[in-house]
């Protein structure tokens, strides 16, 4: 750099920075455009495969046919979607209350943790499909059975993440709380719970997806349908009747529900942490 350099040129960003800015902008556009291109192309290929091979709709319906089913059967599918959502969010709510409650209990007493943590692990590693039939034998209410199954799948990530978070509080701060003679409750409220928040939200994001999976799997196992059955039953039913377009439509709704749950929970997590937590700050940059 020389003094002779004209000042007017200073605000100009150099080639490397310009390139970086360009790349960032392109990446931002690409992150939207590319997935849309891929999905459009896939749908088109799907449609072509069906048309070119003259596949009957009870083997593989074309995308248009699925859309038709989605619109025609909307009343049935929407009712089922509501049921699935009800079970998913019901299970998630119980998982949050139970997971956080148990985690708090665990950090309050090592004895309770030692007594119960192994059973939480056993509950987690036992496949829900293998316990579900038992649950439906012992629990009369179908809804309650479904909730229990979905809850079993969803609650562990919340429990383990929150427990870890509650124990991750800075140990100097913990000493400081002791120096100032804080009570157990103050330590929990002002130190451990805020420290656990990022961990809890990470667990919540996983649990959201899992409770949907739990709700669907449980309904497959429960089998019986009729009024008040969810999307999983619609899939089973459509399969028996070889109504494959409706099967696809129901599947599409489940996938979309999963995406929406994940996006919503990610957004909540981002909003809750954006002021102070690294994970949220990096995303803003």
């Amino acid at each position: 750099m020389t003094i002779a350099e004209p000042i007017a040129e200073l605000p100009q960003i150099d080639e490397e920075e310009a390139q970086r800015a360009r790349r960032r902008r392109n990446e931002k556009i690409g992150s939207w455009v590319l997935p849309i291109l891929v999905i459009t192309f896939s749908i088109w290929i799907w449609d072509r495969i069906v048309v070119w091979n003259e596949l009957p709709h009870y083997i593989l319906p074309g995308p248009g046919r699925v859309l038709e089913a989605l619109i025609e059967d909307w009343a049935i599918l929407f009712d089922s979607l509501l049921v699935t959502l009800q079970i998913t969010f019901g299970a998630l709510a119980i998982a949050v209350a139970g997971g956080v409650g148990l985690a708090v209990l665990f950090t309050q007493s090592r004895w309770i943790e030692m007594s119960f943590f192994p059973y939480a692990v056993i509950l987690q590693v036992t496949p829900v499909v293998s316990i579900a039939p038992l649950i439906f034998i012992y629990v009369d209410s179908r809804l309650a059975g479904l909730l229990i199954c979905a809850w079993i799948v969803a609650f562990f990530p919340i429990l383990s993440n929150t427990t870890m978070g509650l124990n991750s509080a800075d140990h100097n701060l913990r000493d400081l709380f002791k120096v100032y003679g804080s009570s157990r409750w103050q330590r929990l409220r002002f130190l451990q719970l805020p420290s656990a928040l990022p961990y809890f939200l990470g667990g919540l994001r996983i649990a959201g997806g899992l409770s949907l999976i739990g709700a669907v799997v449980a309904e497959y196992v429960a089998g019986t349908g009729g009024i008040g059955s969810g999307l999983a039953f619609r899939i089973l039913e459509a399969g028996y009747r070889l109504n494959i377009p409706r099967m696809f439509a129901a599947l599409f709704l489940i996938a979309m529900t999963g995406v929406v749950i994940y996006a919503t929970l990610s957004f909540i997590s981002h909003m809750a942490l954006r002021k102070w937590h690294e994970s949220a700050i990096k995303r803003e940059a």
Binding site: D170, N172, D175, L176, V179, Y180, F190
Partner: peptide, 18 residues
């Protein structure tokens, strides 16, 4: 009395959420 003694550590040890 409470607050008669205070401690400063090697790390600032602030609460990042506050």
């Amino acid at each position: 009395t409470p607050g008669a003694l205070s401690v400063v550590f090697q790390e600032p040890s602030l609460m990042p959420w506050a």
